[in-house]
């Protein structure tokens, strides 16, 4: 099938990408260093793995570096081929433009997920060697969330790449995605919320609820909500279940909507 052929082609290309390999190696080293640095010296702590992930590795490394790798892997997916001319080779074959966009999301997302798993191997080795209670289930589960976060950012970046006519615009789009979702989400949505307070007051929801929704609707904080619930053994249960469901729904939204929006523009363009 056409989409699978493109996905496989892009996967093979992306796993050979030096940029991604370098970023993932850096990520792996940093996580391992963190794991080593904050390892408990006593032997009494039972939740060491979970604590390490949710307090140290998660907020400091995963939610900043994994989206960065996702954007790097995705931002030039379509625009790069368009500018270089390899898109001509690709569309000379029986592929639709939708196959191209979603095949790239799938192939590059899979490559990034693989890289994240590989990147977590070294920290796992450190944790196993360290004198703590290593919880492989929690660790592996967390890795899945980290990979999912990366895939969402690949999807957003590929969508932006499909809409961008040139590499420069794609680069600007990629940077904008990263800055908005990773660095400024709280600030921007806080300002908006402040500016729109009359509107918010009129909504049949408290501003705390709106705030909680905005938190869940950013893929970065959304993954944080879900992974923390998972590490606290409260995934899709407990007090925050509603917020978790919105966060999961928003992750699906961010995986599908940006590529669709990008495709709309890409499909109408002369190439």
């Amino acid at each position: 099938m056409s989409l699978q052929a493109i996905a496989r082609k892009d996967f093979q290309e992306t796993v050979r990408s030096r940029g991604m390999i370098a970023l993932v190696a850096l990520f792996s080293l940093l996580v391992a260093a963190f794991a080593f640095a904050v390892r408990p010296t006593g032997g009494s702590e039972q939740f060491a793995t979970e604590l390490l992930l949710s307090v140290f590795v998660g907020p400091v490394l995963v939610t900043t570096l994994v989206p960065l790798v996702g954007v790097v892997v995705g931002y030039n997916a379509v625009s790069g081929e368009r500018e270089s001319g390899s898109l001509k080779l690709l569309l000379s074959l029986p592929h639709s433009r939708a196959d191209v966009v979603f095949g790239k999301v799938a192939g590059r997302g899979a490559a990034l997920a693989l890289a994240v798993f590989v990147g977590f191997l070294l920290p796992a080795a450190v944790l196993i060697a360290a004198p703590i209670a290593f919880n492989p289930g929690a660790f592996l589960g967390y890795t899945v969330f980290a990979a999912a976060l990366g895939v969402v950012f690949v999807a957003i970046a590929v969508g932006s790449s499909a809409a961008a006519g040139t590499q420069l615009r794609a680069l600007i789009g990629g940077i904008a995605i990263y800055v908005l979702f990773v660095l400024l989400w709280g600030l921007v949505t806080g300002r908006l919320l402040g500016a729109a307070s009359p509107v918010v007051d009129a909504l049949p929801a408290s501003s705390a609820q709106v705030r909680a929704f905005l938190r869940a609707s950013n893929p970065t904080t959304g993954v944080e909500i879900l992974s923390n619930a998972f590490l606290g053994e409260q995934l899709f249960s407990g007090e925050t279940v509603n917020q978790q469901v919105s966060a999961a729904a928003m992750l699906v939204f961010w995986t599908v909507a940006p590529p669709l929006a990008g495709l709309l523009k890409f499909d109408a363009d002369d190439l």
Binding site: K9, Q12, E13, R16, S17, S84, G85, S86, K88, L89, S92, L93
Partner: peptide, 13 residues
């Protein structure tokens, strides 16, 4: 079968 003009290849493959 198409041989396009001004194309480029996938350098890593």
């Amino acid at each position: 079968g198409v041989l396009p003009d001004g194309f480029s290849v996938y350098g890593r493959l």
